[in-house]
Design a binder for these strands. Structure first.
Lengths: 263, 263
DNA sequence: CGGTCAATTGAATAGAGTCAAGCGTAGTGG
DNA sequence: CCACTACGCTTGACTCTATTCAATTGACCG
């Protein structure tokens, strides 16, 4: 029922969006077609705009195609916590599927392009392609694992370690996304953004940044980050390594629901 | 009240384990049967034992049938962060499915009973019952949303608010689990455990607890917690309310695509 | 009855927050 | 082209929350 259709971002889409899923397992053409049929209506938003507000009913998911976004929990007093950075390829809004009102809002941190996905796409996905559904499940579990890691650091680690961890994971993610392991990339975040991400004030973030620069670990100028010493950064962040699974239990290509249990 | 230890296979299973899934949508008999076929081999473990260690390859999931457990990230220096409490009905080990080596370990906080689920049960679940798979997906998203909430609090809120939030969410969860809204329940956690949960030292947790007691919000004695003033507790925790979705997009009962819906 | 573990309290310290001011750069409009 | 403005970055001084270390008490167990 899904007619594959091109969209204006197809080359980028292939590389960025599919890369996220295919890091766990391969997709066949039909699966790519199903995926493409789920997302429509590209929208562009500017920094600071809300992709989904905290009080919107969760009727749409969003597929981030370009730019940076973040899931944020805003507090009455104006402070906010950025729960997770979202980079191209991420599906935005999944956790709120479980809730009647979303607990987070999704804000654009740079100019972004998103595609809209009605929530019932998810139902179709589970019904039409168990393998794709399982892959989406896995991506979501990976994000949950990342959140656990951040939570653990938030409770135990110093601001230095947390900032180092942010840069480290970001560099890993960018390496995958842009196929560039130089450790140099554009970082469209203000110091306030970074502070909100690791849970420190902008002032203290600045001090921490200064310290990292002084240690010769990073260079950050004009929104361009360069990691000078991965070794040392890893040591400061004190994180375990992070290797994606290649699960053997996924439903094979072309599986339709009922294939195993139909009687 | 402390539940007596009896053989945990049918009545308790029905009420506790299935309640988690059916809070989103109903299950039919066949779905219950599929679920029951996935979990085997009850094991009992004592407080402090690892249900799954941090370096075990993730070959099994575990279904918690009785007792309390927690997902923990241990640090070299002996400190640890408890990422999430696990109560009866929880499926343990999902986030690690995405990783080659788990980042967390799962420890028993009280005497627990778990069932083993080989990871390929998940594959079967997606292939045989899209509706069940979607429900598991939802439960997992709910846990992720909870983690986001905790992360936000960790970054922004005081120890008081975090402890209040812990008790509040716990009371809500226990109310669902034990069908008892009195706000009184057994709390098999040491102060160190609670500290690890909200990310403060045991010493400071004790002081915070003392403050909460002084305000007349809670009573805690002999591992038994009683919430005296829900109103005030909610105010201190400063959390948004938390209403589960009743999604309309779930694949209908039955394994064949397009099979009739109906509750 | 000592031995271990949990809870409790006190004192000194450090990490991070807030407030406040100064600086740099980019953008806007006369 | 310059003045004016806005925003983000940088720094210093003061405050306070939470940490660490240390010692004491209480509870349970063999």
């Amino acid at each position: 029922m899904a007619a594959p259709h091109d969209n204006p971002h197809s080359a980028r889409y292939e590389r960025r969006v599919l890369a996220r899923l295919t890091s766990f397992a391969s997709l066949d053409e039909q699966e790519k077609a199903v995926l493409a049929s789920l997302a429509h209506s590209p929208r562009q938003l500017q920094r600071g705009e809300r992709i989904r507000a905290q009080d919107d009913a969760p009727t749409y998911l969003h597929l981030l195609v370009d730019g940076w976004a973040a899931s944020a929990v805003g507090l009455p007093d104006g402070s906010r916590q950025l729960n997770a950075l979202c980079l191209p390829g991420d599906v935005l809004g999944l956790p709120s599927l479980a809730l009647a009102e979303p607990i987070d809002e999704i804000v654009a941190l740079s100019t972004v392009v998103v595609l809209e996905m009605p929530v019932d796409s998810i139902g179709r996905l589970f019904a039409e392609s168990p393998r794709l559904a399982a892959l989406l499940f896995l991506v979501s579990q990976e994000e949950r694992a990342l959140a656990m890691e951040r939570l653990a650091q938030m409770g135990q680690a110093s601001a230095r370690a947390r900032l180092a961890a942010l840069f480290l994971r970001l560099a890993e993610r960018m390496a995958q996304l842009e196929d560039d392991t130089s450790g140099r990339f554009a970082l469209p975040l203000t110091q306030r953004d970074m502070g909100d991400l690791i849970g420190v004030s902008a002032v203290h973030l600045n001090a921490t940044l200064k310290w990292l620069r002084g240690e010769g670990v990073i260079k950050l100028k004009n929104r361009e980050l360069e990691i000078l010493d991965f070794e040392l950064l890893r040591e400061i962040a004190d994180l375990p390594s992070w290797r994606r699974a290649r699960p053997a239990w996924l439903p094979p290509h072309g599986t339709k629901p009922g294939a195993g249990a139909g009687d």
